[in-house]
Computed example of a mutant assay.
Amino acid sequence: MSNFTRSVIVTGGTTGLGFHAAAAIARQRPDHCIVIASRKNADGSAESINRSVGRDNVRFMPLDLGDVKNVRSFVQSWGEKSLPPISVLLLNAGSQFPFDIKYTADGFEASFGINHVGHALLFSLLQPYLADEVRIVVTASGTHDPMQKTGMPNAKYTSAEDLAHPSGDALKIPGRQRYTTSKLCNVLWTYALDRRVRRLPQKKWTVVAFDPGLMPGTGLARQYPALLRFMWKRVLPALIPLLRLVVSPNIHRAEESGASLAWVALDDAVKGTSGVYFEGKKQIKSSVDSYDEAKQEELWSWTLKTLAVDEQERRRFEVVE
């Protein structure tokens, strides 16, 4: 590993979007150690990428974003490996629970807990291992924006505590709306973090949100019934050209979106761009709600208060020098 100059982390990098982004980065950055981090690596994804690109710069590390102790253990293991500084951090993994409400190991509603809480904690703990120049990309979704008319329920942000520990009528919120709201949280958090990294005079840290579009065939539908999973995995991928014409142009194969994610992470054309939202390779406006600074700061404050174990750690998580 000592031959590598920089490290890259891709959460959810063993399948779908993250897998193809990791492969594209491995191909373009042979001097970087690319770590794909997921709960499991059943298909030998790191080895598969290495074979496909003819290199040996991809590694797998286990990470469960739904378990705070596991996230902390991951970062401890990272520190023990003496890997090069991280120059690209792709906070990409995501889960959707369309039916009954699910909870993480720590009692957070699972969509919010995995898609937001786990990633926010991972970033906070990894700060000492980030290079002076780092690109952070948060995978969001166009479903967070009602104006996109994706067919998904509108995201609704009330408070972080309501989303983390729903009670009363909030327990009846459909799982798909919990997902779209968690994706709104990804964008809110991105903008809150951007304000903070801009205050670091000695660092060139940038953070953006990224919408990969609809990607039939990926693992996002793994919680759906068997027939819908079959349609998603086997039927819809073959219909992507037609779907682009009759539904939305923002429908892609995972390989295409993975290449776009790698472009947002690496390309000189967007180097230094921060605090913005990309749909594929195109910079666009995110939802109206995502620009609400009160919501951004409420989410940021709740996250720090909830995840930091003491005041000293809270100050570190605040992203100040």
Rank of each mutant, 00 (worst) to 15 (best):
residue 302 W to D: 11
residue 50 N to I: 03
residue 280 G to I: 01
residue 30 P to E: 05
residue 63 L to R: 05
residue 61 M to Y: 05
residue 91 L to W: 04
residue 29 R to E: 04
residue 302 W to M: 12
residue 6 R to Y: 08
residue 238 A to V: 06
residue 298 E to M: 13
residue 226 A to M: 10
residue 53 V to T: 06
residue 317 F to L: 15
residue 67 D to W: 08
residue 152 M to W: 15
residue 207 V to M: 08
residue 144 H to C: 14
residue 206 T to Q: 03
residue 113 G to N: 00
residue 253 R to N: 15
residue 141 S to H: 12
residue 21 A to W: 10
residue 74 F to M: 02
residue 10 V to N: 08
residue 47 E to C: 12
residue 206 T to I: 03
residue 249 P to G: 04
residue 167 S to L: 11
residue 32 H to I: 08
residue 12 G to Q: 08
residue 115 N to C: 00
residue 244 R to F: 03
residue 111 S to E: 05
residue 154 N to F: 09
residue 110 A to T: 13
residue 146 P to L: 04
residue 297 E to W: 07
residue 120 A to I: 00
residue 33 C to H: 13
residue 156 K to R: 12
residue 260 S to Y: 12
residue 62 P to H: 10
residue 4 F to P: 08
residue 255 E to V: 15
residue 32 H to A: 11
residue 63 L to N: 02
residue 129 Y to R: 07
residue 256 E to C: 02
residue 304 L to Q: 02
residue 46 A to Y: 14
residue 305 K to S: 14
residue 237 P to D: 03
residue 209 A to K: 02
residue 271 K to I: 13
residue 297 E to S: 10
residue 275 G to R: 11
residue 182 S to I: 07
residue 149 K to D: 12
residue 204 K to D: 07
residue 61 M to P: 00
residue 200 L to P: 04
residue 85 P to H: 15
residue 90 L to N: 02
residue 168 G to E: 11
residue 150 T to M: 09
residue 270 V to D: 05
residue 258 G to H: 00
residue 270 V to Y: 11
residue 205 W to F: 01
residue 141 S to I: 15
residue 118 G to Y: 12
residue 149 K to F: 09
residue 210 F to Q: 12
residue 172 K to H: 06
residue 133 E to P: 01
residue 94 G to N: 01
residue 145 D to R: 00
residue 1 M to H: 14
residue 238 A to K: 09
residue 274 S to W: 05
residue 19 F to L: 14
residue 27 R to Q: 14
residue 1 M to R: 15
residue 179 Y to A: 15
residue 285 K to Y: 12
residue 132 D to F: 12
residue 256 E to H: 04
residue 163 L to Y: 01
residue 2 S to N: 14
residue 194 D to W: 10
residue 187 V to H: 12
residue 265 A to I: 07
residue 241 P to V: 01
residue 168 G to L: 14
residue 87 S to D: 03
residue 109 E to Y: 03
residue 276 V to G: 05
residue 148 Q to G: 14
residue 210 F to A: 05
residue 30 P to M: 12
residue 137 V to T: 13
residue 260 S to H: 09
residue 63 L to K: 06
residue 273 T to Q: 13
residue 129 Y to L: 08
residue 310 D to T: 08
residue 212 P to W: 01
residue 274 S to Y: 09
residue 111 S to Y: 01
residue 173 I to A: 00
residue 269 A to L: 10
residue 177 Q to P: 15
residue 158 T to V: 08
residue 232 W to Q: 13
residue 10 V to I: 13
residue 56 D to L: 05
residue 284 I to P: 01
residue 186 N to D: 07
residue 148 Q to E: 13
residue 74 F to I: 02
residue 285 K to P: 00
residue 43 D to H: 15
residue 187 V to Y: 08
residue 183 K to S: 15
residue 167 S to G: 09
residue 139 T to G: 07
residue 233 K to F: 14
residue 174 P to N: 11
residue 225 P to F: 04
residue 42 A to G: 10
residue 90 L to P: 03
residue 211 D to K: 02
residue 214 L to Q: 08
residue 275 G to V: 11
residue 237 P to E: 03
residue 230 F to G: 13
residue 252 H to E: 01
residue 36 I to R: 06
residue 115 N to F: 00
residue 190 T to L: 06
residue 2 S to L: 14
residue 299 L to A: 03
residue 145 D to Q: 01
residue 46 A to P: 14
residue 76 Q to F: 05
residue 197 V to E: 04
residue 227 L to V: 13
